[in-house]
């Protein structure tokens, strides 16, 4: 725990230092500059290639992926259970970084879109209590489990802001992206096994509950290496 806190502290310190260094307002044309950046954030990890197409505009293309697994983060009220959650989001994206004010060249408006090759959340809910059916005690196979699945695969527009210069002044910099994807309307599904097989009838309600879960926030730190100046 202490080690993780220390790493977080050092990382934040690095970001602050680099961001301060990169947020001075002297404007340098983006056109012709190129960099590669690795990123880490709510989208998982990823990589991007960045190219300056106009003095105030750069394009970046890249990919991100986040395979996530967690246990017991999901509860159904009144039903004692354990749950296994897995989330897989893989996207390829193209974004445009626009510097709206030359005297605030560290501030960018970012827009674009991504194609989510995979955007899926799966939750398996397994009853945790011994299930007594009358005087019979049933085993796990007889009781079964419930799977809840949500799939957002498809195109998603992105809008956000970025802090710190698009390209490093020298070779390296750190920047931050804050934004959101607007995902396709999710397809939700519930299936069950054993005595819980009938839970597929709850799919329409689940679909209705989840239909507005389309905003995927993106908070991301980018570590850039510039390999070509203009």
């Amino acid at each position: 725990m202490k080690r993780r806190s220390l790493v977080t502290f050092l990382l934040l310190g690095l970001i602050c230092k680099e961001t301060n260094a990169q947020t001075d307002s002297s404007f340098q044309s983006l056109k012709g500059q190129q960099s590669l950046q690795l990123n880490l954030g709510t989208q998982g990890i990823g990589a991007e290639y960045v190219y300056g197409v106009l003095p105030e505009l750069a394009l970046r293309g890249g990919l991100n992926f986040i395979p996530l697994k967690a246990n017991n983060v999901f509860k159904i009220s009144g039903f004692n259970s354990t749950s296994n959650l897995s989330a897989d989001f893989y996207n390829i994206h193209v974004l445009a970084d626009y510097v709206p004010a030359k005297n605030l060249s560290w501030f960018r408006v970012v827009g674009g879109f991504a194609y989510f090759l995979k955007a899926r959340g799966d939750i398996r809910v397994i009853p945790s209590d011994d299930y007594k059916y009358g005087d019979l005690v049933l085993n796990e196979d007889q009781i079964g489990y419930v799977d809840l699945t949500v799939d957002w695969k498809g195109f998603a527009p992105y809008l956000g802001i970025a802090l710190a210069h698009t390209f490093p002044k020298k070779n390296f910099n750190v920047s931050v992206d804050l934004g959101t994807y607007y995902l396709t309307k999710p397809k939700a599904d519930i299936t069950g096994t054993g005595l819980l097989e009938g839970n597929s009838s709850q799919t329409p309600q689940f679909q209705s509950n989840i239909k507005d879960y389309r905003w995927l926030p993106a908070i991301q730190v980018n570590f850039s290496y510039k390999f070509k100046n203009n």
């Binding site: 159904i76 039903f79 019979l136 819980l196 689940f206 509950n209 879960y213």
Partner: peptide, 18 residues
């Protein structure tokens, strides 16, 4: 704007064909 609980009004359906 998307803060509706995913499990709202979802019932657990249990079969009796033990």
């Amino acid at each position: 704007s998307a803060c509706k609980k995913p499990t709202e009004n979802i019932k657990i359906v249990v079969d009796t064909d033990v």
